[in-house]
Amino acid sequence: MTEFKVQERPGEGVSILDLRGYLDAHTATDLENAFQRLLGAKKFNIVVNCRDLSYISSAGLGVFMAYIEDVRKNNGDIKLTNMTPKVYNVFDLLGFPILYEIYKDESEAISKFQNTTKH
């Protein structure tokens, strides 16, 4: 049985999703539901912390692609942080760093949102 957990945590002006475990075609729905909840609550400044994400397949990456357009239309963004080299490698192979902001640490992504909001 695949173990995957997504938990929402409030930050300063942002919503943080903490991912844990294995994100594949079986568990991708859990992440979809989390994004749907955030968008339903009009929370568009989203930081996804991948520190405890052990594994991702293209089904998991597809979830980010499904929601990024709606989020950006609402002047928000999905910023990804704290990836292990193994997980980053998959994002990199699929060219995600071209279109998604990926930071080493969550605090960098949060301050990026705060700077954008101030302008």
Partner: peptide, 17 residues
């Protein structure tokens, strides 16, 4: 890949991987 990503298309990426 670039065309795929900029149009936010899901699917097809598994074969590429």
């Amino acid at each position: 890949l670039k065309e795929h990503l900029t149009h936010y298309r899901r699917g097809g990426l598994g074969v590429y991987l």
